[in-house]
Write a protein that binds this DNA or RNA. Sequence first.
DNA 1: TCGCTAACGAACAAAACGTCCGATTTGTAC
DNA 2: GTACAAATCGGACGTTTTGTTCGTTAGCGA
Lengths: 187, 187
Amino acid sequence: MDRRQRKTRKAIFSAFTQLLARKNYNEITVQDIVERADIGRTTFYSHFETKEFLLRDLCGELFGHIIETAMGLPKAHYHYVACEPTDSVFLHLVRHLQENDRSILELLASPNDQIFLGYFKDGLVKMITSQYAAEGRLGKGGLPEGFLVNHMAASFVETIAWWLSRGMPESAEVITGYFLATVEPLL
Amino acid sequence: MDRRQRKTRKAIFSAFTQLLARKNYNEITVQDIVERADIGRTTFYSHFETKEFLLRDLCGELFGHIIETAMGLPKAHYHYVACEPTDSVFLHLVRHLQENDRSILELLASPNDQIFLGYFKDGLVKMITSQYAAEGRLGKGGLPEGFLVNHMAASFVETIAWWLSRGMPESAEVITGYFLATVEPLL
DNA sequence: TCGCTAACGAACAAAACGTCCGATTTGTAC
DNA sequence: GTACAAATCGGACGTTTTGTTCGTTAGCGA
């Protein structure tokens, strides 16, 4: 990809992220984006068909990265889900958010949190399906596997959202412990 | 309220609901609404300041009704959350959705499901807070009360969403049982 | 019946959309 | 370094939506 394209794309993502952090998605116009990104209107449309495509691509990059990182962890981190949060892949995810991806945290706590929590959950469903379900570790409680996978992903996302909504007073270990406490009895 | 006002308001809600059932909220214009409702453009704006206010009012009526019905149930239905779904207030909610509020189900399974699931969850948080937390029944698992309330509401909403997404193959009793299984160990 | 007011519809300016094109700048390959 | 390719720019465009104004018509309720 051309350096000019990379630069423009980055400027658009940056501007869009800044706007999303404090304004409703619906109220953000292409005008706002190109002004803040300081690019020509035509240029925007040569990169993204619509605002929706921009959102899709942005989320793909943000969550694609974090989920792939998690899925690339050694298998050991996936084994003992429960009891001690230490080394759980979910603790890694929380730490990753806290340390590396502050922009994701901003978005997950923004007026547009629903959108991003949804994307986050979708990524988690993929991760959980491939890492847990494949090992046959689910379904011990008489609940269907699909239900459990969905429940785990949703519960993690909700835990993060609850944590963020109050300003993250708990440590990563504690909040991971809360989450694990909700799913451990089901596995 | 004037009969004319009631009629107009009803027509707007009806048109909006129909549109929401098959089109993204963002893509629905005031133009679409007034055309389908067959009312004058001016009339719409005399009833609702913006599309957002219309959404707020609609959700208030839909979920206000269902939540208030649930909160008006005899206290007995709130006591034994777990084990047998029979007579649980959550089973009542599921049945209510299934039998009386098909339009809510349509919206909860529409392209705009996130919006309505969010409103639904907010209502549930209120209900759970007033009915359970007041009795001091929460927090047995060492988890904070606020966390548990949020988790219960979110888990119920996610269960309903999962159920709807596959066409509601399970009975109301079974799906309520799934939900109760996720929260029972925490109480 | 009569007064009040909701609904109508035409028209309006302002803003955003998405697209065109010609000119200019900037990467990249040679 | 040069030359070609392509990305960006910026102005302009027709269209659509928005939210408002105003005079008229129609219907409700006392």
